Simulated assay, not measured.
Amino acid sequence: MKPLMILPPVVFAGLALMFYFGMNRGDDQLASTREGGPVPALTVAEFPGEPGFTVEELADGEVKLVNFWASWCAPCRAEHEYLMAFAEEGIPIYGINYKDEPANGRKFLDDLGNPFTAVVSDESGRTGIDWGLYGVPETFVVDGDGVIVKRFAGPITGAIPDTVIRPAIDAAR
């Protein structure tokens, strides 16, 4: 009977080690099925007071960012100052307001500033699905031919602009 008493702690220790090593692989970004492929279709609506854009405009010869965001998204608010800095550097950013009330999205941009060259609204979430979106914010680096070079899930804050986004922009050029 004593050997059975030791079995639960041994099993628990084994599972704990497996979870520990599994969570510390250093690969914390989910893989994107879109990297290396053309930008998907846009099933979007007009965003109030802003010019819209098409898939063809995303392949206009210029490297750009496509950013999915929403007014209800706290991490979107956190990354906004970094998007404003990219825009001030002359990097075009195309915004897709994701599953948001247009009036709330408009207020978000009015309050924090508008870094976007153009903005559309993905009210139904269809474009998000087509792009393989996991959630907001998510940013895609698109080369001049309309090919997705990099997908970054999560807010672009801290060192991310210099360690992930700018190197992807340089690679896209």
Rank of each mutant, 00 (worst) to 15 (best):
V11R: 06
V141A: 11
V141I: 13
F86T: 00
K150M: 14
D60C: 01
P9Y: 09
F47T: 04
R173Y: 02
K99I: 06
D60A: 07
T127Q: 07
L17T: 15
A78W: 01
S121C: 11
F21S: 10
L58W: 02
I169V: 08
R151C: 08
A103W: 01
F86H: 00
E57S: 05
P8D: 12
E46V: 09
D100L: 12
N114M: 11
D145R: 09
D170H: 02
R166A: 03
P51H: 08
I91S: 00
A45K: 10
F152E: 07
G135I: 11
Q29I: 13
L30G: 09
E62S: 04
D145C: 09
V119G: 10
G61N: 05
E89N: 02
M23G: 06
R151G: 05
M5Q: 08
G125P: 08
L133K: 12
V66P: 01
F108I: 15
T139S: 08
V39S: 08
F19H: 14
P161V: 07
D122A: 13
N67S: 05
E57P: 06
K107I: 10
L83P: 00
E35R: 06
F12P: 12
T163M: 10
A171D: 08
G125V: 10
K99G: 06
I160K: 01
G113D: 08
F12V: 15
A41G: 06
T139R: 06
G125W: 09
G144Q: 05
D143K: 04
G132W: 05
G146K: 11
Y20R: 15
G37I: 06
I6P: 08
G52S: 07
I6S: 12
S121R: 15
L109D: 03
G52Q: 13
E101L: 14
A70T: 04
I169G: 00
P48T: 11
R34V: 07
D143L: 14
G135Y: 04
G132T: 07
D162C: 02
N67L: 04
E79W: 05
I156Q: 00
P92G: 01
V147R: 08
R151S: 07
G113K: 02
R126P: 03
G14L: 13
G113H: 07
A168P: 03
G22L: 13
R166F: 00
G154F: 08
A118Y: 09
P155V: 08
G105I: 09
G132N: 10
M23W: 15
A41W: 01
D111S: 13
D111I: 09
N114I: 14
